[in-house]
């Protein structure tokens, strides 16, 4: 008797899941992805854990970046600078204020980052397309120059090392032990960020942003405060970059200015397009592929830029939907 009831329950649940709206399904997929990554962690060894964690961190800045590009039509060439704000705030706070708690450092980075991006966004939301891209580029370069030239504080191109931090006040004996737990921390933040972004883009606000992208004048004529909404989208997008940057330091153990030059900004653009800028999962897929490419391509050839540029050109001409777009079209054909 009990057996039959259980089977029926299970069946009902499965049915409910397939009938769920796309939005709820999305959250389910994200959670599933997280669970899988959590489970495999002990089995894949420190090297691969590092790569996965790196991919997750870059996914966060990618998602933020794509909020502006895919959903708003704004290309930012300066996200590396914002990433740098998060990264260096964490580094400098750990060095000069002797803080070792991961939670506190991340919170501080977010707080400092917010102050800056609230001001920056006010100006940036006035700009469109090219002017926006250039404005962000100049900002990114100014940050880069600051980290480089203020070498008294930031260590310049010698870089800054990130000490062994504590998570939840637990001290770790070695870097490897720290990284083992840090992986889960990064995964948690990734999940929160991704779910939030998913809800955002499927919300009325997200839909309105799309309308702004399509025709911002018409959007005004249905009563949308375009500039205000662009401002909000900007803040969220850059906030993701700040979080991502802050997470990067402890993973790498070492930070330096070249990480946040316009080259990195370009790489963010690259991976988003590679994954597919019109799809939510695009930046995530792109980040992981980018991470793997970045690890392996240099072993084959030193002409990484050429590969990046050439693949990007091919993507634009043949697969403007990116990899995710290509996969979707394959599914539709069935």
């Amino acid at each position: 008797m009990v057996y039959v009831v259980d089977m029926k329950e299970g069946y009902n649940i499965m049915k409910r899941i397939t009938l769920m709206e796309k939005e709820r399904k999305g959250i389910l997929y994200i959670v599933l992805f997280t669970i899988i990554l959590a489970i495999i962690h002990p089995f894949i060894g420190p090297y691969w854990s590092f790569i996965v964690a790196y991919g997750l961190i870059i996914s966060i800045v990618g998602l933020g970046f794509n909020l502006l590009l895919g959903y708003n039509g704004l290309l930012s060439f300066g996200h590396a600078g914002i990433f740098g704000i998060g990264m260096y705030t964490l580094g400098l706070c750990s060095k000069y204020f002797n803080i070792r708690s991961l939670e506190i450092l991340i919170s501080l980075s977010i707080a400092v980052g917010l102050i800056i991006i609230i001001g920056l966004g006010y100006v940036a939301s006035k700009l469109i397309i090219v002017y926006f891209a250039l404005f962000m580029l100049s900002f990114g370069q100014i940050i880069f120059a600051l980290t480089y030239k203020l070498y008294g504080i930031t260590g310049g191109s010698d870089g800054l090392s990130i000490p062994l931090l504590t998570i939840l006040n637990i001290n770790f004996n070695s870097r490897i032990d720290f990284l083992y737990c840090y992986y889960y921390f990064v995964l948690l933040i990734f999940t929160i960020c991704t779910i939030f972004m998913w809800i955002l883009v499927n919300s009325p606000f997200g839909k309105t942003l799309q309308a702004i992208k399509v025709d911002d004048i018409r959007a005004t004529y249905i009563g949308v405060p375009v500039r205000k909404y662009r401002y909000i989208a900007f803040i969220i997008s850059t906030l993701y970059a700040v979080i991502s940057g802050a997470l990067y330091g402890p993973l790498n153990g070492f930070i330096y200015p070249e990480l946040i030059s316009h080259v990195f900004s370009g790489e963010i653009v690259y991976l988003t397009l590679l994954g597919g800028m019109n799809y939510f999962a695009g930046p995530i897929v792109g980040s992981f592929i980018y991470t793997i490419l970045k690890v392996y391509i240099p072993t084959i050839t030193e002409y990484w830029q050429f590969i990046m540029g050439a693949t990007l050109i091919i993507m634009i001409l043949l697969f403007p939907g990116g990899i995710v777009g290509w996969i979707y079209s394959k599914f539709k054909k069935r």
């Binding site: 709206e21 939005e23 919300s203 009325p204 606000f205 997200g206």
Partner: peptide
């Protein structure tokens, strides 16, 4: 949505 001032809602789904 815009007229009903709901376009600023972030924490709900448009479709819902």
């Amino acid at each position: 949505t815009s007229k009903e001032k709901k376009s600023k809602k972030i924490l709900s789904f448009f479709e819902s």
